[in-house]
Amino acid sequence: MSGFDWLVPVFLTVITAATPLVFAALGELVTEKSGVLNLGVEGMMLVGAVSGFITVLATGNYFLAVGAAALAGAIMAFLFGILTLSLMANQVATGLALTLFGVGLSALMGQDFVGEPVAALTKLNIAGLSDIPFIGPILFGQDALVYFSFIMVAVVSWFLYKTKAGLVLRAVGDSHNAAHSIGYPVIAIRYMAVMFGGAMSGIGGAYLSLAYTPMWAENMTAGRGWIALALIVFATWKPGLVLVGAYMFGGITILQLHAQAAGLNVPSQVLSMLPYLATIIVLVLISKDESRIRKHAPACIGKIFHPAA
């Protein structure tokens, strides 16, 4: 058994690297399923990260902090909704604007807190269970948000595919005109989906500033919001596959740390490129099959809805 003990910290770091991606990608998945493409994930994550961080510094309460992060993300998403849903602005351009705005806003909010440390989110410790060699720390030694991310994957799958509300949401995403003529409130449903996406991105960001590296640094998401967007394509809009993809990317991100620790003679910059290169490669491999993308992607994604009536 002891021969594999070195694997435990590897698994643990993979989990912390993957969790923010799970949250952000899962939220954006619901947004996209309703037919809206929000490219502002990166900006919402950053604002969530800094809001969560400031809340912990002020109150010391992690529960409140995660709530604040979710709220901040949802408010950002609401702004996006006003522009794209009510004012019918181009979704691609507005998403970019949201990211640029979020980068600036989070830097401004966090300028007094750069480098200040907070205690990392506490990990579960069940006497007995968490001490089981190997599987103990992995299964029973995580922080609450990791478990929450798994619960959310199940909840989102159940909601999308097993409930009427989920069916309506997917209908709105596949044909907003048809959904509208049956009488579903297309815009209201999209607002909710967009804000859910924002809240989840905010939590994903907060995981970075509260658990992954418990501190605030400008631009600390380092492109994870964009990787989350790529993950959805990779997962062909399926929640379960989002989870698989996020852990794969978590693994690649962590590879660099352990490769360096193992004394591999590769410049750190080359290793840091890996997640970005992997994203490109994965996108290329998945997108190659155009019919598969078309089959799974929500048909109305990115299209503007303006009820003629």
């Binding site: 702004l79 006003i82 522009l83 004012l87 019918m88 602005a89 181009n90 351009a93 507005t94 970019l96 604007a97 949201l98 640029l100 705005f101 979020g102 980068v103 600036g104 806003l105 830097a107 401004l108 300028q111 400008e218 303006h306």
Partner: peptide, 26 residues
């Protein structure tokens, strides 16, 4: 003032511009 104000300012310009664009078509 923090330098980040520039970024917020630039982001706001684009935001408002896209919002006002509704007036072009509607």
């Amino acid at each position: 003032l923090p330098v980040a104000v520039t970024g917020v300012f630039q982001g706001m310009v684009l935001f408002f511009l896209l919002a006002c664009d509704v007036l072009v078509h509607y």
